[in-house]
Every structure is written in C-alpha cells, then in structure tokens.
Amino acid sequence: MLRKMSAVVLGGVLVAATLAACGGEGSRNSGGGAAAGKDDGKIVMGFSQVGAESGWRTANTKSVQDSAREAGIELKFSDAQQKQENQIKAIRTFISQKVDIIAFSPVVESGWDTVLKEAKDAGIPVILTDRAVDSPDKTLYKTFIGSDFVVEGTKAGEWVKKEFASAAGPVNMVELQGNTGAAPAIDRKEGFASVLGSDPKFKMLASQPGDFTRVKGKEVMEAFLRANKDIDLLYAHNDDMGLGAIEAIEAAGKKPGVDIKIVTVDAVKDGMQALADGKINFIVECSPLLGPQLMELAKKVVAGETVPERVLTEETTFTQEQAKAALPDRKY
C-alpha cells in the first residue's frame, strides 16, 4: 500500500516537474524569438555575479538589478559564490537559453577563452563588468566596464607619498591583498607599487592575501603585528579587510588611524563610517553603481552600435572630513 502510494506521489511530482520544465522552455523560446525578431524590443540579459562577499558586491548586484528593471531589460541573475566553475556553468546556461547579451564579473582573470568562444559562436555578445579577463583575444567580448584598479592603487600610493612626505625615517608598510589571482588584487598591488616601489624610504614588510574578508583580514593582520614590531602604514585592497585589521590593531593595544595609518579601497558604508570615526585615514572609491551605464551599453551592443573597448566608472577619493560629509547619503 505504502509503496503504491509513494509511486503515485512520485509520479505526480514527475508530471509536475515536466510541466514546469515545459512552461520554462516555452517562455524562454518566446523570449528568444521576440528578441531575435526585435518585435517588442525586450532585451534579455544573463548576468553572472561573483558572489556576495562584501557590502560592495551587494551594492553592485542591487545597482544592476534596479537599473535593469528601470531600463526594461529582463535580467537572468546568477550568483557564482566565488567559484569559477559555477560562473562557467552559468554562462553555458545563458548560452543555451539564448539570451541576447551576457554580462559577468569574472571571479579570476584566467581560464575564460573556451566558454567565451562558445558565446561568440552562439552569436551572443559579452560585456565584462568590474573585473577583466587576461584573454589575448579581444574579440571575445564587446567591452569592459568598470574601475581601473591600477589607477586605484596609484591613488592610494600617491596619498601615502604625500602623507609621509615629511617623515624622515623608513616608512614600514604592510599590505592585505585580495584573493590570489583576482584582477583587483593584482592591479591594486601593482598601482601602489608603481608609486612607492622605487622610493627607498618606503619599505613593504609583508604582503599576504586576506581574501577580501574581515575574518581573514583580522587573522593576517594579527600575524603581521606579531612578526613586525614597527608598522607605520597598512594598505588593504578593500574596506572589509581593513575593518578586520582594525580589530586586530585595537586588540594589540594600538590605535588604528593614529599608530598605524590605514588606506583602503572601495568606500562601502561600513568603511566610510570607520573613516569618519578616524580609524581609517584615506579611502579610494571603487564605485559599484555601474548598473545604469551597463544597461546603456547593453542596449547599444544589442542594437549593433559600436561601443568603446573600455568604459570607466566615475569615481573619487575620500579623506576623513569628506567621509563625514558623504556618509549620510551613502547607499551601500
């Protein structure tokens, strides 16, 4: 009896699943057809996000989702949870769903050629957002919209140079990098080093990855503080690692922002709060609000217009005073 019943239930589930699948397939087909025919002009965009590893990323996701709605673009959103294989899977799904355009923020720089080739063969244009890929074939994607991380690193380095201009002795620095191999980690390190690397006054004592997270940032900073008695400056590749490091510095009985100067990149709300509180000294903005620009580009690309190869997001920098002024309107 029981067996029979479970068979019936299972059968029901199967039927339901098939129906659901049919429904999904149907709507997809009509969506693809409409886009191909350009009847109603409704563009379908597949967007693969890195994850939700920080407040910055969450704001980025929200900006993309909100501006897609405003622009009347149907968004298929997929969260890769920091894994490249998830992202490749998502892109393949977008290709099989025949979306009109694919946009994604690559988790790491390398290993994208095959799947981007598949997209190109399927005739689906690709826009990179926020992070670059190291593929030599530039035809694999239409454009890359995002911040220039090297410039961000340079801005941080220039501030440090000015801040310690009158300091006589060697300036001992430590660096918290992002995930090993990620574009922002490589470029922010490079930009920073391009300003200070040649100056013998500035000494980089240690540089290790804190994976862009608070927990890891704190842990690594604790080890830095043990191994190096005299640290003058911390350069963190994002606010969250800096916030973790602040906890470590305070636990070691030092004053963040005073005993150890801190410069970070991003300018998320929690970071700006710490900047306004005087625990961080300088933040280079890396704006996540690229949604409107992305939708604009997507429309142009789908319409067949030519777009520039590289589009920069508008960004600034914040001192402690500027942070106090900007904090009330900070959305993320």
Binding site: E53, V215, K218
Partner: peptide
C-alpha cells in the same frame, strides 16, 4: 566564534 571575532556574519565566507 568566527562571526564574533569581527562582530559580523558573512554567510558566503564564514567557515568556507
């Protein structure tokens, strides 16, 4: 412990 150490909970990365 992990969330208390930085007074915040990160569903994506804690305990990864």
């Amino acid at each position: 412990m992990v969330s208390s150490t930085v007074s915040s909970a990160d569903g994506n990365n804690n305990g990864l």
